[in-house]
Design a protein around this nucleic acid. Structure first.
Length: 218
DNA sequence: GTCCAGGGCCTAC
DNA sequence: GTAGGCCATGGA
């Protein structure tokens, strides 16, 4: 059985569908993607709740907010100065080019759209792929720190691959299936939060028998 | 008190 | 082209 399929199946059997991305609209999802950069999701939830309470979960609203007020609303998510700038850059870009509608921007072919997102300051490869996959429902595999860490421990990656190499590793071995990509990335995150942090925690790991790390550190 | 979190930008070499 | 510093909050 294909290794990536087996790993996916084991994770799915253990954790079940993750129902990602938790957001009411594509734009809210993109906001979450920026706010969660190197940040615990619990902190992001607080910031999004503040934005919702302030009626500020639309591109138009975020464009119009004073920078200091936006910083105050997203303060719990950390890095609030740069994230406030990033949110306003994205929002104003949507206002100026897509009538303030992210879904209009997302109705384009994947690759040029990905380049367009990456050209925005504050949108790197993981944020872009998250928006493409979870807001745009386009088959762009999302890589994060957990992905490299987990698959290195499994012995399938060396650990020094760059983002594009890891993304290609999955893209080359999986069908471009949006539902599969969606669930796979979410399952990797869910799994790593329990079993694959920097400190080893192997007891009960659903990948136990196929994890090289565990075999080498019994 | 220390470490870490669903990264990305900027600068120096 | 890449290693290192920086950004900031809150929970474990």
């Amino acid at each position: 059985m294909d290794q990536l399929r087996e790993i996916y199946q084991r994770l799915f059997d253990r954790y079940g569908p993750r129902h990602w991305w938790p957001a009411e609209t594509p734009f809210e999802m993109a906001v979450g993607a920026i706010l969660t950069q190197n940040t615990n999701w619990k902190n992001v939830e607080k910031a999004i709740a503040n934005l919702r309470a302030a009626g500020a979960l639309s591109p138009a609203a975020i464009c119009q907010l004073e920078r200091a007020e936006l910083e105050r609303l997203i303060n719990p998510s950390g890095f609030f100065r740069q994230k406030a700038e990033r949110l306003q850059l994205l929002s104003c870009y949507l206002r100026d080019h897509y009538q303030g509608r992210l879904v209009s921007m997302l109705r384009q072919p994947l690759e040029p759209l990905r380049e367009e997102l990456l050209a925005l300051k504050g949108v790197g490869p993981e944020t872009a792929d998250s928006i493409l996959l979870y807001a745009g429902e386009l088959p762009s595999f999302v890589v994060d720190a957990y992905t490299g860490r987990l698959f290195s421990r499994l012995g399938l990656l060396s650990g020094d691959e760059k983002y594009a190499q890891i993304r290609n590793y999955f893209s080359d071995r999986l069908p471009p299936d949006v539902a599969l990509f969606n669930e796979y990335h979410a399952l990797i995150v869910c799994h790593c939060k329990e079993h694959c942090r920097k400190r080893p925690l192997c007891a009960g790991c659903p990948l136990g028998e196929i994890c090289r790390y565990r075999q080498q550190n019994p």
